[in-house]
Design a binder for these strands. Structure first.
Lengths: 350, 350
DNA sequence: AATTCACATGTCACCGGTGACATGACGAGT
DNA sequence: ACTCGTCATGTCACCGGTGACATGTGAATT
C-alpha cells in the first residue's frame, strides 16, 4: 500500500509536491507533475482519504439513521440524501435503528463519533435531548418525525391535516363507523394522525369511540385480530383509516369488503384490486430537503433557517373507498367513486 | 470539542492514562480512573473515532454497494449486512450504484479510499477487473451477481435452475408459447435466467423463438409494449416468465389473463389477485453470508474459502399459473393449480 | 546592478489516539 | 539487603496527508 512519501521518494521530490500534484496546485512544473504522476501510476498509489479526513477533522460523510431501510418510504429518503451527497462528492453512512428505542442513543452516538459532517435522523425513541451537545458541533436534521426534547431542524409532513382529510373522505362516502389502525402512539407521527382522525370525526359530528381505535396492528396476525374486533362491535366499523403503509400491507391479505384509506403511498397500491386510495407523501422530497439543509448549514454556519418545515400531503383517490353497503337495500346503485367494478378488477391478472 | 489531552491536563495525568481509562486497561489506579472519568464527563469528552481508525489504518466499516436501495431485494441485503456488522460493532457505508455502468468504478473507488474493512458489492457493470489490486488489501465479496474479469468471493442464486424450474412450471400447465421478460442481457443474472428459460423450452421440445423474448421491460410503458408484442404474434404467448420483480411490477397494471411466474418474491406478491407464483430468493441470507465472509476473511487471512457459493431458489406456487384457455373449448374444467377461483379473489378487498 | 516578484519546491508541525518502551515505586521472595 | 516482578504511569514516535511558512531561482522592472 504505497503512501505519498513512497511516491515522493520514487519521483525524487518531497511529499508536499506529491500532495500538490494530487490537488492540482498550479505551482507545479509540468515535468515534475508528469514524473510524479508516472510514479503514482507505477506504484499504483491511492490516496488514503482517512488521513485527509482525519486532518481536516471532519469526514465528508452524511449519516442517515432510519427505522428500517427495507421500508420503501425510508429507502426513498436514504436514496434522496445519497443523491444530494454524491453531487457534493460526499458519501452516506446508513444505519437502521430497528425497533428498540433504547438502542437509538447508542447507535446514533456511535455514528456521531465517526465525525460525520452532519446527520439525518428519523428517530424511533421519545427523547432526543441527548443530541443537544452534538447539535452544537454539526448539523442534525430530522425527517418524517420531529425531535422530542430538543430543538433542531425538521422536515415532516402534515400528519394532522392528512389524517383529517383521509377520514373526511370516508365520512363523505357515508361512513359513520370508521376504524383507526396504527402501530404505536408513542411515535409522534401516529399520534398526530390519530389526532387528525379524531378531529375529523368530531367535525363531522360523529363520536370517536376508543373501541374504533386499534393499535399495534403492524403484523398480519395483529391486523387480523384488530379487524375482527372492529367488525364485531355492536355498531361495526364499515371503513378503516390505516395510519401507515405497514399496517395497510398487513391488513390487505384479509380485508374483505371494507373501505380503506391509507396514510402513505406504496408500490403496487395502484395495482391492487381495488386499488388503494391513499394520502400520498413524498419521501424523496423529504430526504432531498434534509440533505440540502445539512449542506446549507455547513456552508452558512451563521445563517438562520426556519427550524420546522411541514410538507403537505395530498389525497390520491383510487378505488378503495365505497359507500357502505346498506343491508336493507342491496340495490342502492353503484358506489360514487369506484370506477371499475369488482369483477373487472378480478380479471386483471391470470 | 475536548480532546484526550484536554482531559489529561484537567485530570493531571498524561494522555496515555486517559487512553487507558478509555480502553479499560486494568493497570489504572481506581482513584485515577475515577478522576479521569469525572473530567471526561465534565468536559463532555467524546473520543474521536476518526483518529483511532486512522491510526489503526483501517476503519471498522463494511461498505455495501447495490444497484438501488429502494429495491426491497437489495434493501434486504443491506439490512442483513448491517445486522451482522452491528453485532461486531462495525458500521455500514451504503451506496447505490444507480443505472450507469460507467460510474461504478468511480463510486467503488471512492468508497475504497475510505479504507473500509471490506466491501460487499452487487455490481452493475460488465467488468470488475479494476478491483483486482484492491482485493489484495481487503476482502471484496460479491452478492447476487458474480464478478466479471476478476476472481473473488461471491454469493449468488441458482439463476439457471430457477429459470428452468419456473419455465417448466408453465410448460407443465400446458403452455407452449411462453414469453420472457427482462431488462438487460448484460447483467449476468438476467443472462443466466434467459439461459435457463431457453433450456427448459428445449427440454420440453418447444422452440425458443427470439420473438418471445422481450428485453428492456423494466418500466410500465416498455412492459406494456412488450406485452402487446407478445400478444400480437402469429402464435401469441399465453404465459410469461418475468426474469425479475421489477419487470413483474411494471407488468402488473396491465397484464390481463396471462399466466405469470416471476423470479424473486416481493412484498404483496401473495396479496395480489391472482397471487403470484414466484421463484423465491433469500436476499437476507445472501447479505448475511456475504457479511460473514468479510468477517471470516478478516479474522483468518490465510484460510482458504470456497470462492463461489450458489444458493438454491425454490418455487412458491400461488395462483398466477393457469392452464391456457382453449378458445375451442371453454368448458375444459378447472385449472389444476389455481386454488381460488378468479371471482373468489375479486372480493378480497373492497 | 539592484530590487522585486512570481514561481517551484522544501521543511516541519500538526490532527488525536495508541503501541512500544521506559521509569519509578513498592512488596515479596531468597 | 538485594533481586525480581508487578503495578501505575509517563514519553515519544507514528499513522498519511496538508497548512503555514521558508527557501531558492530566474525573469522582469526600475
Amino acid at each position: 500500500m504505497a503512501t505519498m512519501r513512497d511516491v515522493a521518494a520514487a519521483a525524487g521530490v518531497s511529499s508536499k509536491t506529491v500532495s500538490r500534484v494530487l490537488n492540482s496546485d498550479p505551482h507545479v512544473h509540468p515535468s515534475t507533475r508528469a514524473r510524479v504522476e508516472a510514479m503514482m501510476r507505477e506504484l499504483d498509489y491511492v490516496p488514503n482519504s482517512l488521513a485527509t479526513t482525519f486532518r481536516s477533522g471532519r469526514s465528508s460523510v452524511i449519516g442517515v439513521a432510519v427505522p428500517d431501510i427495507v421500508d420503501p418510504f425510508f429507502a426513498s429518503i436514504v436514496r434522496a440524501v445519497e443523491h444530494v451527497a454524491l453531487a457534493r462528492d460526499m458519501s452516506t453512512l446508513v444505519t437502521s435503528l430497528g425497533e428498540d428505542p433504547t438502542r437509538e442513543r447508542l447507535i446514533l452516538e456511535s455514528m456521531l463519533r465517526g465525525q460525520p459532517s452532519g446527520i439525518v435522523v428519523a428517530p424511533i425513541s421519545g427523547d432526543q435531548s441527548f443530541l443537544a451537545a452534538w447539535s452544537l458541533r454539526l448539523p442534525i436534521v430530522f425527517v418524517d418525525r420531529p425531535p422530542l426534547g430538543l430543538s433542531a431542524d425538521s422536515f415532516t409532513q402534515d400528519n394532522f391535516a392528512g389524517a383529517f382529510t383521509a377520514t373526511m373522505h370516508l365520512v363523505e362516502h357515508g361512513h359513520d363507523r370508521i376504524g383507526f389502525l396504527g402501530d404505536t402512539v408513542t411515535v409522534p407521527t401516529t399520534a398526530a394522525r390519530l389526532h387528525g382522525y379524531r378531529s375529523a370525526l368530531q367535525a363531522a359530528g360523529l363520536s370517536a369511540d376508543d373501541e374504533l381505535i386499534a393499535m399495534g396492528a403492524g403484523t398480519r396476525a395483529s391486523a387480523a385480530c384488530a379487524l375482527q374486533t372492529l367488525r364485531g362491535l355492536a355498531r361495526p366499523a364499515t371503513a378503516v383509516f390505516s395510519s401507515n403503509a405497514r399496517c395497510t400491507m398487513a391488513l390487505l391479505p384479509l380485508a374483505d369488503p371494507m373501505s380503506i384509506v391509507t396514510f402513505g403511498d406504496f408500490p403496487l397500491a395502484d395495482v391492487l384490486r381495488p386499488s388503494l386510495t391513499v394520502m400520498a407523501q413524498d419521501p424523496a422530497e423529504l430526504g432531498r430537503l434534509a440533505a440540502h439543509r445539512i449542506l446549507d448549514r455547513l456552508d452558512h454556519p451563521n445563517r438562520r433557517f426556519r427550524r420546522s418545515t411541514v410538507l403537505p400531503v395530498h389525497l390520491v383517490e383510487r378505488e378503495s373507498c365505497v359507500v357502505p353497503e346498506d343491508p336493507a337495500d342491496r340495490a342502492s346503485g353503484p358506489p360514487p367513486t369506484a370506477t371499475r367494478s369488482q369483477t373487472d378488477g378480478a380479471s386483471l391478472l391470470v
